[in-house]
Simulated scan of single mutants.
Amino acid sequence: MQPMSLLITTCALFVGSHLLLSHPLRAGLAGRLGERGFMIVYSIVAIATFVLIVQAWRGMPPEPPLWAVDDPLWILASLLVLVASILFMGSLIGNPAMPAPNAAAAAQAAPRGVFAITRHPMMWGFTLWALAHALVMPTPGQIVLSATIAFLALVGSAGQDAKKARLMGDSWRHWAARTSFVPFARQVAGTTPWGDALPRGHALFGGIVLWLAATWAHGALGFMVAGIWRWVG
């Protein structure tokens, strides 16, 4: 199999197995195996298919970039990763989409910070991270990998909406009615004040720290120098 075909195949396996186990197959398998047994199977499949992607990625030959990458594009990508980091850190506290015992209670709170931006801040963070990588490493292989991550994040979020509505009922539907799937859709529509979307402290400062650490590690581990480290030091 050609390297690109292998990469596409492994990405399809990763996405397909994740979506199947997360939604149509979950109830049946969890009923037979128990929740703990299901999570073990889910984790094994996820890790195995991810390892296949890594191996396929490592086997890709050098590819010429599809467009020139200059400083303005690096600045845009760096800002996208910063926003992604803020969304990710903000999603870790008070998120009704997380499998936590207090999810229903969290859904009763007024959406503020990253949740006023989108009810799926973690998944949009992954999407922006993938987009940033495609912008500054515009090879066919990287675009396939970035598209895989973004597709899984956004389609998984849509599936999560349906699953949470079944599990949480009116609590989730009430939360969904006061939030948006697409970032800033409610602000643009004029139904939510822009001030509500200002990130809270843990999201803003945690996101900045994560961004600085991750972009520093990018260069320190031998990959391309990223973030502000391209221009300082």
Rank of each mutant, 00 (worst) to 15 (best):
A104H: 08
A203H: 04
W194E: 03
E35I: 11
W231Q: 04
G28F: 11
A165Q: 10
A177E: 15
P193M: 05
K163C: 00
D70R: 13
V81D: 02
L135N: 09
A147F: 10
A134C: 11
I93A: 13
V83F: 12
V41F: 12
T127A: 15
S85A: 13
G207H: 00
V51M: 11
R36S: 12
L152Q: 10
N102C: 07
R112C: 04
G125R: 03
G201S: 14
R58V: 01
N95Y: 06
G233V: 05
A176V: 03
A68V: 15
S5C: 07
S171P: 04
L212C: 10
A68Y: 11
W57T: 07
M224L: 13
G59N: 07
W231Y: 15
E63W: 05
P193R: 11
F223D: 09
M1I: 12
A116W: 01
R26L: 07
G227E: 00
L52M: 15
S43D: 08
L82C: 10
L154M: 11
A107Y: 06
T118S: 14
G156K: 05
V188M: 10
S157E: 08
G219R: 06
A197K: 03
A109N: 15
L167Q: 13
P72W: 10
Q2L: 14
H202C: 06
R186I: 07
T191I: 10
